[in-house]
């Protein structure tokens, strides 16, 4: 990529995001569930869980086989909109270690096309601990760029300096809000300003409520905010407004 292209990319119009600061760095949260880092033109997406359908099918549970296609289409949409210089897939990109091998040819081609003209980084996850086969991209366990560190699983320490600037996935955060006797549950970003957990991007992925014990190992109890995904905007709430499942 030439210096001109990268310069132009930096100033091209990107979709409207909800801007926040993580460890002092300005990033944008998008209602599709992706994270956008305008200064570096990096798009970050977590927990694609591609080939989850076929993974379950091997075990006799025939989930609809459209998950990979749906996820890739959605991914294509955001990549199109943001045209990032680099894409980071923040782990569990495939539902199991053989997922990339099972990827049908058409989807492999689609994914490869998305990778053209940009850098692609696969961060390994607990579901896919090895590099994907027959696909471009660099595989890392974690990567630090400037003030931000990208890894799949968050470090289980609250308020430590080691976790400042951490951006991760793995937990599939979801939040529930109650109103007029009804409750609404959505996938969400969750952050305390120093570290951030992304929602799961994949089509057949569920969510773990942020009031669950698991999050108390990451954030100080009730000291975080969530941004719930809506149809074309995000809805911010503080932890105290949320209810459990």
């Amino acid at each position: 990529m030439t210096a001109l292209t990268s310069h132009l990319r930096k100033y091209a119009a990107a979709p409207v995001c909800h801007d926040i600061q993580i460890n002092g760095q300005l990033v944008g949260l998008h209602d599709s569930g992706v994270l956008w880092w305008p200064e570096e033109s990096i798009l970050i997406v977590a927990d694609l869980h591609l080939e989850k359908g076929s993974s379950y099918a091997r075990r006799g549970v025939f989930l609809p086989p459209y998950d990979t296609g749906a996820t890739l289409e959605k991914l294509a949409g955001v990549i199109d909109a943001f045209d990032p210089a680099c894409v980071i897939c923040l782990g569990d990109s495939f539902h199991d270690a053989n997922g990339s091998d099972r990827l049908p040819a058409a989807y492999r081609a689609m994914l490869t096309t998305l990778q053209l003209g940009r850098e692609w980084i696969w961060v390994t996850g607990n579901h896919d601990p090895v590099a994907p086969v027959r696909l471009c991209g660099v595989t890392v366990k974690e990567i630090t760029i400037g003030p931000l560190t990208f890894r799949h699983e968050p470090i289980e320490k609250v308020g430590a300096t080691a976790t400042a600037g951490e951006v991760c996935g793995h937990l599939h955060p979801a939040a529930r809000v109650r109103r007029f006797g009804r409750s609404i549950r959505r996938a969400c970003f969750v952050t305390d300003g120093t570290r951030l957990v992304l929602p799961a991007f994949g089509a057949l992925t569920g969510g773990l409520n942020v009031t669950d014990e698991a999050y108390s190992l990451i954030f100080r109890r009730r000291h975080f905010s969530v941004f719930m995904l809506g149809n074309d905007r995000l809805f911010p709430f503080t932890a105290s407004r949320l209810v459990g499942d």
Partner: peptide
């Protein structure tokens, strides 16, 4: 969504 927006705006 309207409900959510409502709740958010209340805050």
């Amino acid at each position: 969504d309207t409900l959510l927006a409502d709740a958010a705006e209340e805050l």
